[in-house]
Simulated scan of single mutants.
Amino acid sequence: MRPEIAVLEIQGQFRVYTEFYRSDAAEKTIVMVNGSLATTASFAQTVRNLHPQFNVVLYDQPYAGKSKPHNLHERPLTREMEGQILLELIDHFNAEHIMSFSWGGTAALIALSHRPKRIESAVISSFSPVLNEHMRDYLHRGVKHLGDHNRYEVGHLINNTIGKHLPSLFKRFNYRHVSSLDLHEYDQMHYHISQVLELDPDNYLTAAKNINVPVLFMNGAWDEYTAADDAVLFARYVQNSSFSTIEATGHFLDMEHKAACRDSREALLNFLKPAAETSRPTYTLVQHHAFAC
C-alpha cells in the first residue's frame, strides 16, 4: 500500500508534505489531522482500518515531519492557521470526511466551523472541551519542560501520562521521536499549550457552534486526560454530535492493543456508513511511532 506523495504550496507561505492512499474501490476521501508533535506515521494503524474503503490523506504540519525541510519556521503557527491549512487540503483532495487525533481536534473544529461545502461528516478522537485536573497538570508540566527544551523530561512526561497504556515497544518509539525533535517544534508546542491554558474554554469553542455536519467524538474509557465523560459536553456546542467510548483503552485508542484496534475500526465505519461497508479484517498492531499529543 504505497501512497502518492506530494509537497503542496498552501496560501503562498507554507509547503505541506502529503500522502494520498488511493483506492479504486473507494467513493469517498478522508483527511487525517495529527495531534501536536506528531507526523503522518502516527496514523499508520488508522490507515489500515480505513483503507481501501476510503481514500486516505495524511499530512505533516509545516513545522513537523517531512514538511520541516520546506519551511522557514520563523514563528509558531496558530490553530487558526492550522485550520486554514486543513481547509485548503480538503479542497485540494475533494475530501468528504475528516478525522482528527488529540490536539488536532482544535484545527479540525476550526475548519468545520467554516462549513466547507464538500464535508459530510467528521470524527474527533481523544479530545475534550474540558481541561480537567489531569490535563491541566500534564500541560503545566509540559509547558515547563518544553520551555526548558528538556528532551528527557518531555519524552518521559508523555509516556507516563497520556501514553501510559501504550505497549512498551511503542513507548520506546514515542520517547525516541519526542526527545529528538528540533527546538522549533518544542517552541511550537510551548506556544500552543500556553494559548490553551490562557483561554476561556467557552470562548475557545464558540466556533464549534457553527458546525453543521454530523460529528462523532471518540474517546478511550481509560483516558483520564481527554475523558469520555467530559467529551459528551461537546453536545452543548455541536448540534449533530454523537459519542463513542472505546472500552479498556486510553488516549491512543487503536495503538494500544488488538481489541482497541478492532473496536475503534468498528466505531469509525459504523459512523461513516453508508460510505463504508465493513468487512472482517485481520488486525495487526504495526510498529510505528505513537507520538505525543
Score class of each variant (00 low, 15 high):
2 R>H: 15
2 R>W: 12
10 I>E: 01
12 G>D: 06
17 Y>R: 07
17 Y>G: 06
19 E>V: 13
20 F>L: 09
31 V>H: 06
32 M>F: 15
38 A>S: 14
39 T>H: 01
40 T>Q: 02
42 S>Q: 11
45 Q>F: 02
46 T>H: 07
50 L>D: 01
51 H>L: 04
51 H>T: 05
56 V>G: 06
65 G>H: 04
65 G>D: 05
66 K>R: 15
67 S>Q: 09
71 N>V: 13
71 N>L: 14
73 H>T: 02
73 H>Q: 14
74 E>L: 15
75 R>Y: 12
77 L>F: 05
78 T>F: 03
81 M>H: 01
82 E>L: 15
90 I>E: 01
99 M>K: 03
100 S>H: 01
101 F>S: 04
102 S>P: 04
103 W>Q: 14
103 W>E: 09
106 T>S: 03
109 L>I: 11
110 I>R: 10
113 S>L: 07
113 S>C: 10
114 H>A: 11
115 R>S: 10
117 K>R: 08
119 I>M: 08
120 E>H: 06
125 S>V: 04
126 S>W: 02
127 F>E: 04
132 N>R: 11
134 H>C: 06
138 Y>L: 15
140 H>S: 01
143 V>H: 01
150 N>Q: 09
155 G>R: 08
159 N>G: 11
163 G>V: 02
165 H>C: 04
165 H>G: 00
171 K>P: 02
171 K>M: 12
172 R>A: 11
172 R>N: 03
173 F>L: 13
178 V>M: 13
181 L>N: 05
181 L>C: 09
183 L>C: 08
189 M>L: 13
190 H>T: 05
190 H>Y: 14
191 Y>H: 07
204 Y>G: 03
204 Y>N: 05
208 A>D: 06
210 N>I: 00
210 N>S: 13
211 I>W: 00
215 V>S: 08
216 L>F: 09
218 M>W: 05
225 Y>W: 15
225 Y>Q: 10
226 T>C: 13
228 A>F: 00
228 A>Y: 00
231 A>S: 15
235 A>F: 01
242 S>V: 00
246 I>A: 00
251 H>Q: 09
252 F>L: 07
256 E>G: 14
259 A>I: 12
264 S>Q: 09
269 L>G: 03
274 P>N: 05
274 P>V: 05
278 T>I: 14
282 T>V: 15
287 Q>S: 13
291 F>D: 07
292 A>H: 02
292 A>W: 03
